[in-house]
Write a protein that binds this DNA or RNA. Structure first.
Length: 416
DNA sequence: TCTGGGGTCCTCGGGCCC
DNA sequence: TCTGGGGCCCGAGGACCC
């Protein structure tokens, strides 16, 4: 007797904000926006202590700093977007990816905290470890969400998965103080939608028979994989709800959206998804990019740009070395002042994770793009990765001399 | 006053080889 | 020798996600 597939999607509730509340309990329930800085409490303390009041706060005081001392959105000057906003801030219309200046007009009194990704990663590892203890088949989907295969976990079938979901929720809360929402369904696609049904703190169980009543009334945009572009095209054809998408002929969707995308849209609308829960995936590329404080010009700001470029190459190289990878496709990414993006890449003969080599090849790529226009972003990327222990006869952090020689074209890297 | 950073996957066109 | 595929790889760009 074969048991039905039960897949869970677990999504942490307001993850970044909740992690911050553990450190700053006095901010709980207030409109809080995270963004405009990446050094966490160090940056916050530096900002607070630069103010006019008499005492110098230290890391030990974080939970006791009165709310009125925290920086407000309205006082922020500079570029940047919101990484995340607390539920209280969202009520003002503020949301992720919104420019900080625009957000300041909507909710000037919101507290602005610098992000602390190291801390978020620590909590991410912690809650995932808790889940693995209970249900080992877990797929990492980013810092704050996972898929879990409940099918063969003891108790995973009870009440459609609700009993196990409850156990996981409680264990995470106990270990970390954080709350999450869980959806359990026959596949990843439906589980992902289900986890949103009852946020925060909810558990939603979806069966195949719920398709028409619970999935079809939802807007197409709720399907993971239908973004703003596809949604707009669907709307042009009068398709708004998933049920309307399901009513479309498969052949018609293929005609309008292409073989692969059209068929996928049809399957998704009918709740069909056979993707397995992947416990291990290898990275395909690693990159570093940065948006400048002001737009830069390749000629007039050559020195500044060159220094940034070198730093990006060093950071990517360090990331590769730390994680034990090397790559052979090296590229650059530029964003012009009008937000147009250009990318150039070049594959070299041998794998490398050497900063100088990466900068050199990336510099060649940079020569192939329009550098007469002002730039607002520069990035360096290394792709086609291999794990270093799989080519363990080669040096760990260097390019083989013969590989460099084979790529004579990349030998003339001056500034770019 | 706009619009981050780090990824994945797909498509399409061109070059190359058989 | 000429022409016409098909298959594959590479590079550029786009859509999408967290």
């Amino acid at each position: 007797m074969q048991v039905p597939r039960r897949i869970a999607h677990l999504d942490m509730d307001a993850f970044y904000a909740s992690v911050e509340w553990l450190r700053y309990p006095q901010l709980k329930g207030l409109p809080v926006v995270i963004g405009g800085g990446r050094r966490g409490p160090d940056e916050l303390l530096a900002r607070l202590n630069a103010g006019p009041h008499e005492r110098a706060w230290t890391a030990a005081d974080l939970a006791d700093i009165p709310v009125e001392f925290f920086p407000r959105l309205k006082d922020y000057t500079g570029r940047g977007v919101i990484t995340t906003a607390s539920y209280a801030a969202r009520r003002f219309g503020v949301g992720s990816a919104m420019g900080l200046m625009k957000a300041a007009r909507l909710c000037p009194q919101a507290i602005l905290l610098p992000a602390d990704f190291e801390q978020y990663r620590r909590y991410s590892r912690a809650f995932k470890a808790v889940i693995r203890e209970i249900a080992p088949v877990l797929e990492d989907r980013g810092i704050d969400e996972v898929y879990i295969d409940f099918t063969h976990v003891p108790g995973g079938q009870r009440e459609g998965g609700r009993v196990l979901a409850r156990l996981i929720q409680k264990s995470i809360a106990q270990a970390t103080g954080l709350s999450c929402s869980v959806g359990v369904a026959p596949n990843k696609l439906l589980a992902k939608m289900a986890s949103e049904f009852d946020k925060p703190g909810g558990i939603s169980i979806v069966h195949e028979s719920d398709l028409q009543t619970r999935i079809w009334p939802l807007p197409c945009r709720k399907i993971n994989g239908i973004g703003p572009k596809t949604d707009a095209r669907l709307q042009e054809h009068g398709i708004h709800a998933i049920g309307e998408l399901a009513a479309c002929e498969r052949a018609w969707l293929i005609e309008h959206f292409g073989n692969s995308h059209g068929a996928w849209l049809h399957d998704a609308a009918w709740g069909r998804d056979e993707r397995p829960v992947l416990t291990e995936t290898e990275p395909v590329s690693m990159s570093r990019e940065t948006t400048f404080e002001r737009d830069l010009h390749a000629v007039r700001d050559r020195a500044e740009l060159g220094a940034i470029f070198t730093r990006l190459a060093e950071q990517v190289a360090a990331d590769l070395q730390r994680k034990g990878y090397a790559g052979k496709t090296i590229g650059v990414k530029l964003r012009y002042d009008d937000f147009q993006i250009a990318t150039r890449e070049h594959s070299v003969a041998g794998y490398t994770n050497d900063a100088r080599r990466i900068r050199q090849v990336a510099g060649q790529c940079l020569k192939r793009v329009d550098l007469t226009r002002k730039l607002r972003l520069l990035g360096v990327r290394v792709g086609t990765l291999v794990k270093l222990d799989s080519i363990s006869n080669q040096p760990q952090t260097h390019t083989m001399p013969w590989q460099t020689a084979m790529d004579a074209g990349a030998e003339t890297g001056e500034l770019f």
